[in-house]
Every structure is written in C-alpha cells, then in structure tokens.
Amino acid sequence: MTAVAAAAVPAGVRHEVRATRVVWQREMMRFLRNRGRLAVTLAQPVFLLLVLGTGLSVLVPSTAGTGDYRTYLFPGVLTMTVQMPAIGAGASIVWDREAGFLREMLVAPVRRGSLLLGKCAGGTTVATCQGVLVLSLAGTAHVPYDPALLATLTGELALSALALTALGAVAAVCISRVETFQAVLSFAMTPLLFLSGAMFPLAGLPRWLTVICLANPLTYAVDPLRRAVAAHAPAAAAPSPGRQLPVAAELGITAALAATALAVAAHRFARPG
C-alpha cells in the first residue's frame, strides 16, 4: 500500500521540472485567456511607436539614410513591450499571494525555487511573445523584415525579458502588498527606460546622467537591439556615450543580471515563515 503511495509521489529532478512546467503552463493559460490585458499592454508601445514616433519624426529629421525617428525609437519600443509583461510576472506573484493561491503552491512538496523558475519562465515567454507581435510592426519603422535580423532581435528580447522578469520577481518576493509593488515599479521603470537610450541617444548628456545611464541595466538590453537594427537601418544608430562594449559583453551583462536576480529571488522566496 505504502509502496504505491511512495511511487505515486516521486521525489527528485523530474518532479521539480514538472512543477516548474505546470506553473509556466498556468501563466500561459492565464495569458491566452485574458485577451483584454494583452490588448492593453500592447496598446502603449504601439501608440508610442505610431503616434509619438510619427509626431517627433517631424522634429527630429533623419540624418542617415532611410528611416526617421521611428526607426530610432523601434528598439526602445521593443524593450518597453517586453518590460511591461515581464514586470507583470512579478505582479502575478504578489497577486497570487493576495488571492491566496500562492499558499497552495508553497505547501506543495516541491522546492520553492522550482515554482519561482516556472513563474519567471512564464513571464519571459509572455513578454517575448508580445515583443514578437510588436516586431511585426517593423515595417512601419522602416526596419526591413530580414529573417536573420528578426531572429537576432527575438533572441535578444527573450534575454531582456528574462532579466526584467527576474528583477520583477525580486521586487515581488520583497514586497507583499499589491499597491506598494505597483507604486515601486512604476516609479522605477519609467526613469530606467528614459535613461537607457531607448528614447534619445545617451551621448551628449551631462556627465552625472551618463554615469546613471551606464549603471542602468536596461542600457545593456536596449543597445544590442539598437545595433542589430542599425546594421539594416542606419537611422537607428546612436553614438555611444563612452567606450562601446562588444555586443557579446552587453548580452553577458544582461545574462549575469538575470542569473543574479533569479538567485536572489529564489533565496528570499525559499525562506520559511
């Protein structure tokens, strides 16, 4: 009898992987079922690209080849697109806590790190999917639909999404109230985006702002996207504020950030009450 029971609940890696996958699956189901939320989170970057980008392209005449300010803005808009759902994954941890569902997960015989990994994988997938949807608007920003470019951009977006989701998770495990979480993130995310080179080139900023920009993790998420786009549409190019790092180093910084944030979040999350 007990042998059956023991076999019914296998310990070990496969069980943890399955737990991670089901948490990821739940995020996917909630994403696909909530079309309204999808529309709202996509509306802002699309609005920014089509309205603000078009309006400002009159003010900012194109200096290099084809394209205009919209081309410059495109990598930033992509980053912004993944930023919101990635943070949303963190918010879903806080919501689950508030709604009580988190307790159902916490009392299960699995490592809390596996649960957190599932949550972050879910946030990353959702964010990347939304990024790909906005990527389909490349033509409106005079960015060519080159398969290699699109693949590079998708990969880089996925990495940024992972780092941002992990950062959101760190905030979520440290903050237990939904209101506080939303206030903290909306306060932090807008300046981070502005100072990442997403909206305007960082070269030529006052020295103190340049320092902040170079310390801003989003800078290293936006710049590889920009350089990939610029290779095909020179209007996206921007002069670098300092000595320019190789793309691999920038991606490495983002990956390291993601790994650190995941480790910190998992560590905090695993603490028993």
Binding site: V9, H15, V22, E104, P109
Partner: peptide
C-alpha cells in the same frame, strides 16, 4: 485545470 495543476505539483502519475 485547478486539480490538474495540483496533480502536477504533487507529482501524481
């Protein structure tokens, strides 16, 4: 789906 989620978390075959 709620129950299946639970089954996966508890590793039921």
């Amino acid at each position: 789906e709620n129950l299946r989620f639970h089954a996966d978390l508890y590793g039921l075959p």
